[in-house]
Design a protein around this nucleic acid. Structure first.
Lengths: 158, 158
DNA sequence: ATACATGCAAACATTTTGCTTTGGC
DNA sequence: GCCAAAGCAAAATGTTTGCATGTAT
């Protein structure tokens, strides 16, 4: 829904170019090489407002490089390990990936019939819980995923 | 095949026998036949305090019937459609299933390293949001899934 | 007697890996 | 030049379906 447009002087961490550069910097710092495929994958994830699957990315016609699935797969795996992107467990068979925007958290609404995914513009009440669970459970690097499922209006009519 | 026994003196909706009977009744009412495999699948899901995969269920040695994977798969699919069980999107490749206990809702804590799943004993602050989203989005039959991920103590030491 | 349920095997879809070649540094 | 990344193809993993047979109703 909300589409952020890049205004040259905005300093927000969501400015696409800014996010891209930071991600590339972090990737390079971790030893990744700066390739066309890497940049393309990151750009796609940054520009999409819903999570994308491996297939979405590898087959994207917006991609200049047309990278192989295996390549995209390995990139996604590395980026996930570096905590630059996140892998989500949505409900269909495929894994979904999404950019991590520092300081932001997104929740989704998924149609159980057609699988359509929408980003929710809500403030998530779970953040506070997270700290509590971190202490109590002794788990580290905790994050959460909150997903809503339901039948979308279009599917509901059928 | 055993018929559903009523236990007139149990009151909690979580009493295993009670839940089983109710589930069987609903299944029968929807046209399912009362088979050994059906009862076994339900019993396993009711008795487990974490979600189970198709493989978990089909290979369970606690199962009297040793039902085939395809059979279990079809049962799970039907039970999900009848809203007797729920399919969860956890993080590894397999789908997880869990019993729906009327009026209850569970959240989970998953280790991103070893995949261990623990049920969280917290009160979920999201219920209220659900209603709000239902109205706003015009989606129907909304439910949610809240999952926490992190590195468990054991994996953290490695 | 009639359908639905089952078991087995095969088809699918997606992820993951091996190996050779290409290309960033 | 060296080692990581890419590309291709094959293996692995988990899900889904087809079909002949068994069984609850």
């Amino acid at each position: 829904m909300s589409t952020s447009h890049q205004h040259p002087h905005t300093k927000t961490t969501r400015d696409p170019e800014c996010v891209l550069c930071q991600a590339l910097d972090r990737a390079r710092a971790q030893g990744l090489r700066m390739t066309r495929a890497l940049e393309d994958v990151l750009r796609l994830l940054i520009d999409s407002d819903v999570p994308l699957t491996l297939a979405d990315i590898a087959e994207s016609r917006h991609l200049s490089s047309q990278a192989d699935r295996a390549t995209v797969y390995r990139l996604l795996t590395k980026l996930e390990k570096l905590a630059i992107i996140r892998r989500l467990g949505l409900h269909d068979r495929a894994a979904y990936y999404t950019m991590i925007f520092p300081g932001e958290h997104n929740d989704y609404l998924v149609c159980t019939e057609c699988g359509k995914i929408a980003r929710l513009d809500i403030e998530c009440p779970v953040e506070e819980l997270e700290t509590r669970i971190e202490k109590k459970s002794r788990y580290t690097q905790i994050y959460h995923e909150l997903m809503f499922f339901g039948v979308c209006p279009k599917c509901g009519r059928a």
